[in-house]
Simulated scan of single mutants.
Amino acid sequence: MMDQPYNRRNFIKTAAVAGIGLGFNLSAAPVWVKEKGNRVGIIGLDTSHSTAFTKELNKADAGDTYYGYKVVAAYPQGSTDIESSTKRIPGYTEEVKKHGVKIVDSIKALLKEVDVVLLETNDGRPRLEQAMQVLKAGKPMFIDKPVAASLHDTVAIYDAAKQYKVPVFSTSSLRYMPSVQEAAQGKVGKILGADTYSPATIEKSHPDLFWYGIHGVESLFTLMGTGCKSVTRTQTENTEIVVGIWEDGRVGTFRGTRNGKHDYGGTVYGEKGNMSLGPYGGYNALLSEIVKFFQTGNLPVKPEETLEIYAFMEAADESKRQGGKSVTIQSVMQKSRS
């Protein structure tokens, strides 16, 4: 396909979430065939994920654990105005340099050095512009949370990935919390419902749940799957309660907290009984899935599911704007394409 100027509106107009009847299958993109190369590049050194992934991939005794993938280059610039991010960049830059990582001054320069990309910028606002450079270069990409700072941009990134035939996936590491995976794989039988919780710190430049609530919402969808129909949100100064109704009548809830001990967990309700979720298991399970994705091109999480997760969080924001009224997933998807 010829490389054409990017038009955000045209990308957004064709996207949809599976199961809501909008007729667009993001998983139908042609299968990508991996070219030889295991050089990893990082965009954004303003998150602890960047240093954690680098330390694990580049450790001397990694052996074949990660198929030989190593971080070889990084572009440090992340957020320009979120203090919790900007203050990390100098220290994290020095940290990855200790592991043999070359620091470059642009994404263009990075893409000349690497085969695959970890998009780690903590700030979702520049993600669309950053991702477009990677996609046009044909580099497979993992996008850390949040995919972007709006549902519009999230849809546009996945649509662009389809156009350029480049595999992309995104997830929170909470998807791979051991107990969540056990339940999702059938430990309690068919899942009848679930309640999850996580910190839900708010960043004013992002929709409320995109910044940190995404972790607990990702856990919820790992258990419940796609098919959420409507969302209702109740909010106080320190707590979020978001209730989703699935098309088959199941109910899933997310509780976000902003005070007390920051923890992750919940309860899943199954045909064989109920099960508590937790504790959090760290980054390594996610990192294993990332390198398998780089090695095979197979998507661990379908685009339709990721888009529905972000539509769920956008619907929660819309419910807040409407004083707690129920908001459909379909309505926010349609609005994102207008």
Rank of each mutant, 00 (worst) to 15 (best):
T257S: 09
P199V: 11
T86M: 02
N259Y: 09
R337L: 12
K13W: 11
L111F: 06
A15R: 03
N38P: 12
L110M: 10
P178Q: 06
E247N: 15
D3G: 07
V166S: 09
K190N: 13
A183F: 07
T232Q: 14
V251Q: 00
E304N: 15
L277Y: 10
N10H: 11
E218D: 15
E203R: 11
T253Q: 15
K325N: 13
E182C: 01
D3I: 14
F142D: 01
T80Y: 05
V327Y: 10
S50H: 00
P199I: 07
N7M: 10
I82R: 15
P279C: 08
S319L: 00
G324E: 03
G138C: 13
A18F: 02
K145F: 10
K59Y: 04
N238V: 12
I20M: 13
W211N: 03
F24G: 04
S85E: 12
G273T: 06
V301M: 07
E308D: 06
K36T: 14
K97G: 04
E308W: 01
K34G: 14
P30D: 13
Y75A: 01
D64K: 14
K229Q: 13
E182T: 15
A18E: 08
I42Y: 00
E95W: 01
A52W: 00
T222W: 02
Q185H: 15
A311C: 15
T47W: 08
V117E: 01
K102P: 04
G266K: 04
G216N: 03
M333V: 14
E83N: 01
K302V: 15
G282N: 07
I241W: 10
S50D: 11
V291C: 07
V96E: 00
P300C: 11
T257E: 11
F312I: 00
T222P: 03
E83F: 10
G278A: 14
P90F: 07
L110N: 03
M141V: 11
M333G: 05
L110H: 02
L220F: 06
V96W: 05
V168T: 04
K320A: 10
R337F: 09
G282K: 08
D208V: 06
R233P: 07
A16V: 08
P146N: 08
S326H: 04
K70R: 14
M333P: 03
T51V: 12
G266M: 14
W32K: 05
S172K: 07
G124H: 01
G124A: 09
K34L: 07
S326L: 08
G252A: 13
G41F: 00
F11L: 05
I157E: 04
T257N: 06
A160T: 00
S336T: 13
V168L: 10
Q334H: 12
A73L: 02
K55G: 10
E318Q: 15
Y66R: 00
D64A: 15
R233S: 14
K102N: 02
G78H: 09
Q295S: 09
S331F: 09
Y69E: 02
E129D: 12
T54R: 05
V332R: 01
L299M: 06
A62R: 06
T234W: 09
I214Y: 08
R258P: 05
T196S: 01
S219N: 10
D61T: 01
